[in-house]
């Protein structure tokens, strides 16, 4: 083989390739599925983390109250434990729904699951928005009535509120981004399957 033969051989490679369809739609589909799976994994991970944190808070509260000097009113402990149990169960239910999604199954069934999940998240948001005034008003009411409240406590309260608002904004975008990504990929897949 001579050096100049390389070019003619390269041209023949090109000619052969012209006859083939290289980029199969299945590849695009798989890439899209991969994109969806990443979003799904993130959502699953996030919900599981929420359940784990709720589970961790219960013994932490009990430990703080009974084994340290940080004492809370008995009713506060009951409320926190009850909220943690409810949140934990809710997180597990959401993980369960996300586990049902499998991109190797039919696109319609996945779309159904993701839409259901989206509805749940919207309801969760409404409940949270309704509870925010209570969460904010309760400490303010307490602070106003307990005259011995220090300025530092107000600072902590304001910082906590700002942090909560930022975290809420992040979560709002986090859920929207990943749910949209899954839905869009599934719709693209559906479109491809219909073609």
């Amino acid at each position: 083989m001579e050096l100049e033969d390389l070019k003619s051989m390269w041209t023949s490679v090109d000619e052969r390739l012209k006859k083939q369809e290289l980029l199969k739609e299945s590849i695009i589909r798989k890439m899209m599925r991969e994109k969806s799976s990443k979003s799904l994994d993130r959502l699953r991970g996030f919900e599981a983390l929420g359940a784990a944190v709720s589970l961790f808070v219960i013994p932490l509260i009990i430990y703080l109250n009974y084994f340290t000097r940080f004492h809370m009113h008995q009713s506060v402990i009951y409320i926190v434990v009850a909220v943690c149990v409810i949140v934990m169960v809710w997180q597990i239910v959401k993980v369960g729904l996300l586990q049902k999604m499998d991109f190797m199954k039919s696109i319609n069934s996945n779309l159904l699951q993701v839409n259901r999940y989206n509805v749940w998240i919207k309801r969760e948001r409404i409940i949270l928005l309704l509870t925010i005034p209570v969460i904010l008003c309760l400490p303010i009411w307490l602070f106003v009535n307990i005259h011995a409240v220090k300025a530092l406590q107000w600072v902590i309260f304001v910082c906590g509120t700002i942090f909560g608002a930022l975290a809420g904004y992040y979560l709002y975008n986090f859920y929207n981004r990943h749910i949209d990504s899954i839905r869009q990929s599934l719709e693209d897949l559906k479109e491809l399957e219909e073609k």
Binding site: V13, R16, I27, K30
Partner: peptide, 17 residues
């Protein structure tokens, strides 16, 4: 995470290619 179905490797190409 997944195996692609591409079979590009030129196993059926001529020897010189």
């Amino acid at each position: 995470s997944f195996s692609a179905e591409l079979t590009f490797e030129p196993d059926n190409m001529e020897e010189n290619i």
